[in-house]
Amino acid sequence: MTGLLAVTAMALWLQAGPDALSDRAQQLAMQKRYDEAEALWKQALQAAPNHFPSLFNLGFMRYSMGQFAEAESWLKKAAQAKPDDFNSRYLLGTTCLKLDRREDALRAWKTALAVQPKNYKLMQIMSVEYSNGYYYKEACAVGRQAVELRGDAPEPWFVAIKACFEARDPETLNLTKQAAERFPNSARANFEYGFQLQKAGLRDESLPYLRKAMSQDPSYEEPFYFYGSLMLLDEQYEQAVEPLRTALKLRPDYVSACVALAKALMGLDRNQEAKEALDGCARMSPTHPQPHLFLSQVYFRLGEEEKATAEKLLSLRLRRENPTIMESPQARPFPGAPRR
């Protein structure tokens, strides 16, 4: 009896217009009855080949199922069918990214941005992806655009700062200064400014901002790590220890902080403490080669040469087994055309 009702209902839907068919298909898709949904959307497209909801939803359904190549073709058609639609262009870009075609993704998002020129969230996404694709100048430019639109929110500033720093944009320092002025109570803004001051060679000027960031948000590990690293660089080992310990306490798997702490302790000839820090770090990040590399140095200093050798070999093995942990950014795919 139930089967008969369903068949009857389907027959009625088939006689309906494309909108109704698409609505029904959407309900079916939400019930994960994908084959039936697709049949209805295709039925709707037979009646109206440029029926946008059907094209888009077919694309979205394929995207959701991880069938990105199929999704792309439906989404392209959807974008053509409705030139002022944002979502199809946005999703087309995301689909291209899934297909490892970052440049096509960015092209699609550019058309989406033309539809919604004030979509600062998309600008932030584009900024990140431009950076990932080595288009640093573009990343910085679109990041700054987002700041112009939503300068009252901190996040666009931080995205722009990162992109412009990678682009080696001379305005980065100024950008971080403005962010610090705009958000004086933001630990992140003060940290970014302190960080950029140091990168600009203004080490002494950077320290107050880093200290401010540490006091504003004692749960934010980055300023503690960076401040400690600066002290380490200057061989002020005693001053390096506490901030690095704090960074590590806040993020126990922060390997860089752990290694920096160990180096500071080794600088103070407190090798046993360095060993303990690295041991803890190795427990937290068992596949990371670095704690073992520096454990090798600590054991050597402690005169335990066999353990030093064992840690060295373990570090080497982990490095080979997990090459991406220590891989250089240069190993990322690079755009085919030269960047000027």
């Binding site: 959701s64 990932n132 990322r332 795919p333």
Partner: peptide, 17 residues
């Protein structure tokens, strides 16, 4: 159908690294 997805960060093409 649903809220549009955000792209994953830092993707790399398999075999291209």
């Amino acid at each position: 159908l649903a809220v549009l997805p955000l792209p994953e960060k830092g993707q790399t093409a398999p075999g291209q690294t």
